[in-house]
Nucleic acid binder design. Structure first.
Lengths: 240, 240
DNA sequence: AAGATTTTTGACCAGTTGGAAAAATGTTAG
DNA sequence: CTAACATTTTTCCAACTGGTCAAAAATCTT
């Protein structure tokens, strides 16, 4: 139930603990031995990123203030700025971690597996992510709504490449008659849409399901439903 | 192609042209004959709402400034504030119009129609809305991501009631063996998710499809795909 | 323990933003 | 034409926000 903490991405050396007072020329000339991060630095950065995820995912980038993040992180604003000199820097770090996490499930879809098993597993994994990492999902959705200004490059290059590859896999399965012939790209879109919906539109889902069915069980119901949808659609089954 | 303008909702009397200087007691005592809006007032309000939709849907509520909206509306900030004394008021109006527009397509799903035709039409209508009113869709998504603070009541009451009703219709169709037995609520969720995805995640869709397929035709492709998905899922067809 | 380094804090600042006040300019009914 | 009212513009401001800075406190090194 408790979302595991995401592994932290390699820190971009542009952040934290800048050379105090180091004048530009000197800094540029000497590579300045980027001393490795101390224990405290790594810990504090993690705390800040966790707090920022909480705040950014709830209010968006512009809707969040450094003060808010600092408070959630349990430190003062100047102290936070000591680790991340720019608000944008925090967001950038969060986004780059996010992208990696986000691509992972699709990467796991193996061409040499059984098509239905692979697709079912993929849906499961995405749904589990919506359940266990809703804040990441919302952060991502937020970025998309805004036109993905910070990650458009990665979307156009890395994500596109990955989807192209997997679309090819799906096409092969179709050619072999193992799954119905349909548009592989839109198939992937629909898996994204249906699963992330349970994180991004959580309020609506809960409100509509009501107290009775809006509890924890809703993800199990969703999993069952989506399986049925992607396997058979709405065609009545006992008519064969 | 050009999105028709949405009909304006009855103006909440809390907005625009407030009683200048009317002291609280007097205003409360005498209903103060809320003189009907002039032509100019209605026009300007519409212009402002249109501009606000543009700005809010792109940057979110907190990410948008009155100045931005005023500029898009082609007027000065104080002038805009003359018509909508509060930034929140503009947003409120937008949201209440939105809700009505948003419920409409589902309302049109008739219990006495042919199940497949009705569901297919519903999907079509929702997809057309994603295509023709992407800004509204994003505004809605934004509100949802934030936990729907402004419309949670309507979601819990009106929307829930409507979905309950239509879920009942779907259940009836299932009982009659006309469509496969599955969870009607999640069915509706999946239609929402898959269709709105094309508005809310438009950047991603375009980027992944690439220049070749990311053009206008993508909505036609989506329509074809979704039809197949909801009718048959991924089960190979020519195996009957 | 002394010195060097890192971390934390409090005071402060400049730019932005939502909004108020009031003066100035239309507009319209009598 | 003019008084009453509607609209627009100009000027201003207080709160908030991202960010700076120097000094204090804590930690690490030798």
């Amino acid at each position: 139930m408790a979302p595991r903490k995401l592994k932290t991405v390699e820190p971009t050396q542009t952040s934290a603990r800048r050379q105090h007072k180091a004048d530009a020329k000197a800094a540029a000339a000497a590579p300045a031995k980027p001393r490795p991060l101390t224990r405290i630095q790594r810990e504090k950065q993690d705390i800040i990123l966790e707090a920022a995820l909480e705040v950014f995912s709830a209010h968006g980038f512009r809707g969040s203030t450094i003060d808010q993040i600092a408070e959630v992180a349990g430190m003062s604003k100047p102290n936070l700025l000591y680790y991340f000199p720019k608000k944008e820097e925090i967001h950038r770090r969060l986004m780059s971690e996010l992208l990696v996490t986000w691509l992972a499930p699709l990467e796991e879809m193996r061409a040499d597996g059984d098509p239905f098993v692979e697709i079912r597993s993929y849906i499961r994994r995405k749904l589990e992510m919506a359940r266990d990492f809703p804040r990441q999902s919302r952060l991502f959705a937020n970025e998309m709504l805004r036109g993905a200004p910070h990650i458009i490059d990665m979307i156009e290059v890395d994500l596109k490449a990955l989807v192209d590859e997997k679309a090819q896999v799906l096409l092969t399965w179709m050619d072999e008659g193992k799954i119905a012939r349909t548009d592989p790209y839109h198939l992937i879109f629909s898996i994204w849409a249906t699963t992330q919906h349970y994180a991004d539109f959580d309020v609506q889902v809960r409100a509509v399901l009501g107290k009775a069915r809006g509890g924890e069980g809703r993800f199990e119901d969703a999993a069952r439903y989506l399986e049925q949808l992607f396997l058979h659609g709405l065609t009545p089954r006992p008519r064969a």
